[in-house]
Amino acid sequence: MAAYVAGDAAAFRVIFARYAPLLLRAMLRELYVREEANDLVQQTFLQLHRARADFDHGQKLKPWVFTIAMNLKREYFRKKKRRPERSLEADSVPEPAVPALGAARVDARRTLARALDDLPADQRQVIELHWFDGLEFPEVAQVVGASVSAVKVRAHRGYVRLRQTLGDEAPLPPLPGDLGAGDRSAGNPERAGSI
Protein backbone atom coordinates (compact mmCIF):
# COMPACT_ATOMS: atom_id res chain seq x y z
CA MET A 1 0.00 0.00 0.00
CA ALA A 2 2.90 2.34 0.79
CA ALA A 3 4.20 1.80 -2.74
CA TYR A 4 0.78 2.54 -4.20
CA VAL A 5 0.34 5.73 -2.18
CA ALA A 6 3.81 6.75 -3.37
CA GLY A 7 2.58 6.47 -6.97
CA ASP A 8 3.50 2.90 -7.98
CA ALA A 9 0.54 1.90 -10.16
CA ALA A 10 1.70 -1.72 -10.34
CA ALA A 11 1.25 -2.01 -6.58
CA PHE A 12 -2.48 -1.47 -7.07
CA ARG A 13 -2.67 -4.62 -9.20
CA VAL A 14 -0.94 -6.55 -6.41
CA ILE A 15 -3.43 -5.23 -3.84
CA PHE A 16 -6.30 -6.12 -6.16
CA ALA A 17 -4.97 -9.64 -6.76
CA ARG A 18 -4.63 -10.21 -3.04
CA TYR A 19 -7.96 -8.85 -1.83
CA ALA A 20 -10.45 -9.04 -4.70
CA PRO A 21 -11.03 -12.83 -4.32
CA LEU A 22 -11.63 -12.41 -0.56
CA LEU A 23 -13.98 -9.47 -1.10
CA LEU A 24 -15.91 -11.27 -3.82
CA ARG A 25 -16.45 -14.21 -1.52
CA ALA A 26 -17.57 -11.89 1.30
CA MET A 27 -19.99 -10.01 -0.96
CA LEU A 28 -21.43 -13.07 -2.64
CA ARG A 29 -22.14 -14.71 0.69
CA GLU A 30 -25.10 -12.36 1.14
CA LEU A 31 -25.76 -10.92 -2.32
CA TYR A 32 -25.88 -14.20 -4.31
CA VAL A 33 -25.80 -12.31 -7.61
CA ARG A 34 -22.33 -12.19 -9.12
CA GLU A 35 -22.87 -8.90 -10.98
CA GLU A 36 -23.91 -7.10 -7.81
CA ALA A 37 -20.99 -8.59 -5.87
CA ASN A 38 -18.63 -7.50 -8.64
CA ASP A 39 -20.11 -4.00 -8.52
CA LEU A 40 -19.55 -3.66 -4.78
CA VAL A 41 -15.98 -4.98 -5.04
CA GLN A 42 -15.36 -2.48 -7.85
CA GLN A 43 -16.70 0.33 -5.63
CA THR A 44 -14.54 -0.90 -2.75
CA PHE A 45 -11.36 -0.46 -4.79
CA LEU A 46 -12.50 2.95 -6.01
CA GLN A 47 -13.06 4.04 -2.39
CA LEU A 48 -9.69 2.58 -1.44
CA HIS A 49 -8.13 4.68 -4.19
CA ARG A 50 -9.89 7.86 -3.01
CA ALA A 51 -8.96 7.24 0.64
CA ARG A 52 -5.37 6.12 -0.03
CA ALA A 53 -3.88 9.24 1.57
CA ASP A 54 -5.56 8.30 4.86
CA PHE A 55 -3.98 4.87 5.12
CA ASP A 56 -1.80 4.53 8.20
CA HIS A 57 1.26 2.58 7.09
CA GLY A 58 1.67 1.13 10.57
CA GLN A 59 -1.66 -0.71 10.24
CA LYS A 60 -2.73 -3.78 8.32
CA LEU A 61 -4.44 -3.22 4.99
CA LYS A 62 -6.87 -6.14 5.24
CA PRO A 63 -9.16 -4.74 7.98
CA TRP A 64 -9.06 -1.35 6.30
CA VAL A 65 -10.20 -2.81 2.97
CA PHE A 66 -12.87 -4.87 4.71
CA THR A 67 -14.18 -1.81 6.58
CA ILE A 68 -14.72 -0.06 3.25
CA ALA A 69 -16.31 -3.16 1.73
CA MET A 70 -18.65 -3.81 4.67
CA ASN A 71 -19.74 -0.17 4.74
CA LEU A 72 -20.59 -0.36 1.04
CA LYS A 73 -22.47 -3.61 1.56
CA ARG A 74 -24.44 -2.12 4.44
CA GLU A 75 -25.31 0.90 2.34
CA TYR A 76 -26.38 -1.42 -0.49
CA PHE A 77 -28.76 -3.29 1.83
CA ARG A 78 -30.03 -0.02 3.32
CA LYS A 79 -31.02 1.10 -0.16
CA LYS A 80 -32.60 -2.28 -0.82
CA LYS A 81 -34.26 -1.95 2.61
CA ARG A 82 -33.58 -5.55 3.58
CA ARG A 83 -30.99 -8.22 4.10
CA PRO A 84 -31.68 -11.11 1.72
CA GLU A 85 -32.68 -14.62 2.72
CA ARG A 86 -29.86 -17.08 2.35
CA SER A 87 -30.19 -19.38 -0.61
CA LEU A 88 -27.76 -22.24 -0.96
CA GLU A 89 -29.45 -23.23 -4.20
CA ALA A 90 -28.37 -20.05 -5.94
CA ASP A 91 -26.14 -20.71 -8.93
CA SER A 92 -23.56 -18.18 -7.91
CA VAL A 93 -22.85 -19.54 -4.43
CA PRO A 94 -19.14 -20.37 -4.39
CA GLU A 95 -17.66 -23.76 -3.76
CA PRO A 96 -16.86 -24.54 -0.15
CA ALA A 97 -13.25 -24.39 1.03
CA VAL A 98 -13.64 -27.87 2.48
CA PRO A 99 -14.70 -30.00 -0.52
CA ALA A 100 -16.69 -33.23 -0.87
CA LEU A 101 -20.05 -32.06 0.32
CA GLY A 102 -22.66 -34.72 0.28
CA ALA A 103 -26.38 -34.09 0.51
CA ALA A 104 -26.23 -34.39 4.30
CA ARG A 105 -23.47 -31.80 4.47
CA VAL A 106 -25.39 -29.43 2.21
CA ASP A 107 -28.22 -29.74 4.73
CA ALA A 108 -25.76 -29.05 7.53
CA ARG A 109 -24.57 -25.90 5.76
CA ARG A 110 -28.13 -24.77 5.28
CA THR A 111 -28.90 -25.41 8.94
CA LEU A 112 -25.86 -23.38 10.00
CA ALA A 113 -26.85 -20.55 7.65
CA ARG A 114 -30.31 -20.43 9.25
CA ALA A 115 -28.79 -20.46 12.73
CA LEU A 116 -26.46 -17.61 11.80
CA ASP A 117 -29.40 -15.61 10.47
CA ASP A 118 -31.11 -15.97 13.84
CA LEU A 119 -28.15 -14.42 15.69
CA PRO A 120 -28.19 -10.74 16.69
CA ALA A 121 -26.50 -8.69 13.95
CA ASP A 122 -23.44 -7.75 16.02
CA GLN A 123 -22.73 -11.39 16.94
CA ARG A 124 -23.31 -12.66 13.41
CA GLN A 125 -21.07 -9.95 11.98
CA VAL A 126 -18.15 -10.88 14.24
CA ILE A 127 -18.47 -14.60 13.53
CA GLU A 128 -18.75 -14.05 9.77
CA LEU A 129 -15.77 -11.70 9.64
CA HIS A 130 -13.66 -14.09 11.71
CA TRP A 131 -14.69 -17.42 10.22
CA PHE A 132 -15.73 -16.71 6.66
CA ASP A 133 -13.50 -13.72 5.87
CA GLY A 134 -10.52 -14.97 7.87
CA LEU A 135 -9.93 -11.81 9.91
CA GLU A 136 -8.18 -12.13 13.26
CA PHE A 137 -10.08 -10.74 16.24
CA PRO A 138 -7.99 -7.54 16.46
CA GLU A 139 -8.77 -6.98 12.76
CA VAL A 140 -12.48 -7.68 13.34
CA ALA A 141 -12.38 -5.14 16.18
CA GLN A 142 -10.94 -2.56 13.81
CA VAL A 143 -13.65 -3.23 11.21
CA VAL A 144 -16.59 -3.05 13.60
CA GLY A 145 -15.14 -0.19 15.68
CA ALA A 146 -15.13 -2.04 19.00
CA SER A 147 -12.49 -3.29 21.43
CA VAL A 148 -10.93 -6.73 20.95
CA SER A 149 -12.44 -7.92 24.23
CA ALA A 150 -15.91 -6.72 23.17
CA VAL A 151 -15.54 -8.57 19.88
CA LYS A 152 -14.50 -11.76 21.68
CA VAL A 153 -17.49 -11.49 24.00
CA ARG A 154 -19.77 -11.17 20.96
CA ALA A 155 -18.12 -14.21 19.39
CA HIS A 156 -18.53 -16.22 22.58
CA ARG A 157 -22.21 -15.32 22.92
CA GLY A 158 -22.73 -16.10 19.26
CA TYR A 159 -21.02 -19.49 19.56
CA VAL A 160 -23.09 -20.40 22.63
CA ARG A 161 -26.27 -19.45 20.84
CA LEU A 162 -25.26 -21.29 17.69
CA ARG A 163 -24.53 -24.42 19.68
CA GLN A 164 -27.92 -24.18 21.39
CA THR A 165 -29.67 -23.79 18.05
CA LEU A 166 -27.66 -26.48 16.33
CA GLY A 167 -28.01 -28.83 19.30
CA ASP A 168 -31.56 -29.57 18.21
CA GLU A 169 -30.43 -30.42 14.71
CA ALA A 170 -29.06 -33.68 13.37
CA PRO A 171 -25.35 -34.13 14.11
CA LEU A 172 -22.82 -33.42 11.40
CA PRO A 173 -22.00 -36.60 9.47
CA PRO A 174 -18.30 -37.45 9.44
CA LEU A 175 -16.09 -36.83 6.43
CA PRO A 176 -13.86 -39.63 5.13
CA GLY A 177 -10.91 -39.71 7.49
CA ASP A 178 -12.87 -38.05 10.27
CA LEU A 179 -12.23 -39.28 13.79
CA GLY A 180 -14.96 -41.25 15.42
CA ALA A 181 -17.03 -39.87 18.20
CA GLY A 182 -15.14 -39.22 21.38
CA ASP A 183 -14.36 -36.60 23.93
CA ARG A 184 -12.53 -33.78 22.13
CA SER A 185 -13.10 -31.16 24.73
CA ALA A 186 -10.36 -28.86 25.95
CA GLY A 187 -7.42 -30.57 27.55
CA ASN A 188 -8.04 -33.99 26.03
CA PRO A 189 -4.69 -35.34 24.77
CA GLU A 190 -6.48 -37.65 22.34
CA ARG A 191 -7.76 -34.69 20.30
CA ALA A 192 -6.09 -35.13 16.93
CA GLY A 193 -6.88 -35.88 13.32
CA SER A 194 -8.73 -34.32 10.48
CA ILE A 195 -12.27 -33.26 9.88
Binding site: P21, N38, V41, V98, A108, W131, L172, I195
Partner: peptide
Protein backbone atom coordinates in the same frame (compact mmCIF):
# COMPACT_ATOMS: atom_id res chain seq x y z
CA UNK B 1 -19.60 -32.02 21.68
CA UNK B 2 -17.02 -33.53 19.39
CA UNK B 3 -16.03 -30.11 18.00
CA UNK B 4 -19.43 -29.92 16.30
CA UNK B 5 -19.54 -26.14 15.99
CA UNK B 6 -15.93 -25.78 14.81
CA UNK B 7 -16.48 -28.41 12.13
CA UNK B 8 -19.77 -26.91 10.98
CA UNK B 9 -18.30 -23.43 10.70
CA UNK B 10 -15.22 -24.73 8.88
CA UNK B 11 -17.35 -26.52 6.34
CA UNK B 12 -19.36 -23.39 5.65
CA UNK B 13 -16.27 -21.42 4.62
CA UNK B 14 -16.36 -20.88 0.87
CA UNK B 15 -13.35 -21.03 -1.41
CA UNK B 16 -11.95 -17.79 -2.85
CA UNK B 17 -13.42 -16.58 -6.13
CA UNK B 18 -11.54 -15.48 -9.22
CA UNK B 19 -12.35 -11.85 -10.05
Amino acid sequence: HDAELGRRLAQAVDADLEP
